[in-house]
Write a protein that binds this DNA or RNA. Structure first.
Lengths: 119, 119
DNA sequence: CATCTACTTTGACAGATATCGAATCAACTT
DNA sequence: AAGTTGATTCGATATCTGTCAAAGTAGATG
């Protein structure tokens, strides 16, 4: 069976939240993504993965960078995976993670402020 | 006394998190901001405030838009205020909130993906 | 001053979340 | 097949967070 969870449909959230009020439904789905970013370890994990050479990082590289246990890292990676911020692939013994630029860009757009907003 | 809490120093977080690994300290402070965005009601509040005519909204306008009590709205507004996402000002009987574009832009930049990243 | 409206703070509580140790799974190596 | 290393899942627990009712504050107005 595939490992790919439905990473929640954010497809209809392309408008900056400053432009028009979010629907309750959009807010619900966006909040899941921002909540995933709302943990220091997950932010660092995402940053480490995204900035890693080759665009991907092995879990073994990530675990050593933190003072928490391996299960905790695994838990945080799962949260990032389920929100579509990263994707994982097993190659032989190791599991590699890479960032999903589309999701990051989408969230970045939602927070962006069009010039002349709020006038 | 002033109502202005120190809205946490994010000044040194101008680089996309895909560009280089976040420091533990940067991640800690950014996480507070993203956590503030990680609630559907707060996202909608922020969106309502930012997109409101004149760039500001009275609390009375906001409270009616949700199914939760006034204290709960007040709590969420406080979280947004303390992270520097909004600012408030009392004029006569009413308290007006407006979005802080600089904070939004900063967070947007952190999530943005420079072209050619991860190669 | 008393009172009304707008908003915030306090205190309490139920549900969510981060964390760990132990157990499990997956792939490689003798 | 047995053992080793890498990674995830499970179960338990301490802490955090969202929520409300009740009480408190701020300003306007009678």
């Amino acid at each position: 069976m595939s490992k790919q969870r439905t990473p929640l449909p954010l497809a209809d959230c392309h408008t900056p939240l400053t432009a028009e009020p979010l629907s309750a439904d959009q807010a619900e789905r966006l909040a899941v993504s921002f909540k995933a970013l709302g943990d220091p370890i997950r932010l660092r994990l995402l940053s480490l993965i995204a900035s890693h050479q080759g665009g991907e990082a092995c879990v073994c590289d990530l675990t050593d960078a933190f003072d928490v246990s391996a299960p905790t890292i695994s838990h945080h990676l799962k949260v990032l995976r389920e929100t579509g911020l990263v994707a994982s692939e097993r190659r032989a013994t190791w599991v590699y993670y890479r960032a999903e630029p589309a999701t990051l860009e989408l969230l970045s757009t939602v927070l962006s402020v069009p010039q002349g907003a709020g006038e």
